[in-house]
Amino acid sequence: MTSQEARESLSNSFGGKIQRETEFRGETSFTIAASDLHEIAKFCRDELSFDYLLDITSIDNFGEDPRFEIVYHLYSMPHGVHLRLKLRVPEELGAVDTISDIWPTANWHEREAYDMMGIKFNGHLDLRRILMWDGYPYFPLRKDFPLEGLPSEMPDVAFTKVTPMEGGPFVTVPSSAGSKDREPRAHPPEL
């Protein structure tokens, strides 16, 4: 199976459900609806032999609706073919189904997406935080979360403070000024 064949097979089976198809350097991305994910993912594994889920990434398009975008990176071990599935999900609870019953590795990937972005997956058996501690009140990779953090306190578990931001090379503005003036430090997003 080549990338071309996988594409045609998906188009034939789910023609109406594929919203957009892009090709970049021989790798294909399909944009689909969140409600079709489980069905298409199962087809990809069982019929197209995409036996390996490389990664799940999520993007916060702050200010747009639906807010989040999730990208599933699939790989076929026997054929050496990559495939991406993209979908947009809103902030509300249970917008997208888990695929941890299809690829067990999705369990921890989805926990990370939940921990960092606050995306909640339907049917996940163990949707706890994976990096931050249980009870941490924020989702730190959201665009409206400041880089310097927000203060929080859980007695005997953990705490966070706001990090002083002066003196760090976080934002570089192109100019002929010296590096001290060219890097006027991180700033909180304008809400």
């Binding site: 730190p140 979360f145 400041p146 310097e148 953090g149 403070k161 990090t163 931001m165």
Partner: peptide, 15 residues
Amino acid sequence: GGMYRSYATLQGIDQ
């Protein structure tokens, strides 16, 4: 805290 000026890192163990 070194280069980690972020929400996740304690800015020096002397705190």
